[in-house]
Amino acid sequence: MQEIRHTPVAPTRTQHLASGACIDAHRHDDHQIIYAGRGTIAVTTVAGTWVTPATRAIWVPAGTVHAHQAHGQLELHLVGVPSRENPLALDEPAVLGVSPLLRELIISHTNAPEGQSDEQLRLRAVLLDQLRLAPQQPLHLPAPSTPLLAEVCDMLRSDPADGRSLAELGRRVGTSERTLSRMFRRDLGMSFTQWRTQMRLHHALVLLSEKTPVTSVAHQCGWSSASTFIDVFRRTFGHTPGSHHNAV
């Protein structure tokens, strides 16, 4: 992220982006809620990437440098929250579960005309109350900070179907399985298997947004069968990839 725009006020609005479109790196003095009503949004910071479907939203704290990328025809809903208000008491990005009520509140609030009518203020108050109840979801794909681990992660991200073991990857980069295992735990806060599964799920969301058939998504992301992929996807997101495919 080179040139960083500073937009002090985080906007509250709805906007539409074509698949592949990007919003460059920028930061706000406000907090922001980012929600994809349709399509899939990837939000990237120096700490890693968050990719979310329409059942999740991303909380971006004030001052966080972040960039967006659209996957599928994106209906993007943005809610700015003044820095003095922090309903989640979070100072780092997080993925939040979005209930049907919270979804409708976000869409209604971001589609409303600009202004501070009594109705808008009441709607916003309910939205923030619901936000406090939103469960956090472990959908963050952390970015490695060391060159050796970055090399391994780049290899896997370039081919999510790569099925090599940690020992095989260690031989490829000239280190041991034990060393790589420690690096994943220390630098990324998760095991190699957890990171690879998370990476594959992120890639699956992107492919589904591009209308790729579920069986092909499973194959391209390295699952042994479509049924295995469907089971992992359902346990993670609460719905099947087929129903997600129809929603994006």
Rank of each mutant, 00 (worst) to 15 (best):
Q194F: 11
A54T: 09
D91G: 12
Q2P: 09
A18I: 06
D118V: 04
S145G: 07
D129P: 06
G242M: 09
L76K: 04
A218E: 15
A143G: 10
E168H: 00
R5H: 15
A36S: 13
I106W: 11
F233C: 04
D154M: 03
A143N: 05
T40L: 08
W50R: 11
G170I: 02
T228N: 11
R27S: 15
H245N: 04
T146G: 06
R38M: 05
E104L: 07
D231Q: 14
A70R: 02
S191Q: 07
Q2G: 13
R84P: 10
N111S: 14
S145E: 00
W50L: 14
H66G: 06
T236H: 04
D118H: 01
T197N: 13
R185Y: 12
L76W: 07
D118M: 03
A161R: 11
A25E: 10
A89M: 10
Q120I: 10
G189H: 07
T236E: 03
P87L: 03
H239L: 11
S99L: 05
V95M: 11
S243L: 05
V248D: 09
R164K: 02
T64W: 03
G170H: 08
A134M: 06
A134F: 03
F184E: 08
P61C: 08
A18F: 13
Q73D: 14
L78P: 09
R103K: 13
D30L: 04
H77S: 05
F229H: 10
V173W: 05
V43G: 12
P53F: 03
C221T: 15
D24T: 06
L78S: 11
H109S: 12
Q120W: 03
S176I: 01
P87Q: 05
L76I: 02
G115W: 01
C153V: 12
L180C: 03
I4D: 11
T179R: 06
R27C: 14
L96N: 04
G72H: 04
E114Q: 12
D24V: 06
